[in-house]
């Protein structure tokens, strides 16, 4: 990196402002992205959860697990 520090700082700041202040909000209003985000919010899903404890709802034990598991159909 050969640019002077103030110039690098200005470029980095502009890039962050342009992406987070302009590009991403605009993407949020575009068809497929808007549909995906709306679907996630409607179902209360947090796709950014790294581990199950970060989910809004802890995974529920499916009803069938209460039944006796029998080998072979």
């Amino acid at each position: 990196m050969s640019e002077p520090r103030p110039r690098r700082l200005a470029i980095a700041t502009l890039a962050v402002v342009a992406i987070w202040g302009g590009l991403l909000p605009a993407l949020l209003r575009s068809g497929p992205v808007a549909r995906h985000v709306a679907a996630m919010e409607e179902r209360g899903i947090d796709p950014a959860a790294m581990y199950y404890t970060e989910l809004d709802r802890l995974p529920a034990r499916p009803a069938w697990i209460e039944r006796r598991l029998t080998l072979w159909p």
């Binding site: 987070w20 991403l24 993407l27 949020l28 992205v33 995906h36 985000v37 996630m40 919010e41 947090d46 796709p47 950014a48």
Partner: peptide, 8 residues
């Protein structure tokens, strides 16, 4: 940011 958040 919602786009980043919802695309994990």
């Amino acid at each position: 940011q919602k786009v980043i958040h919802h695309y994990n």
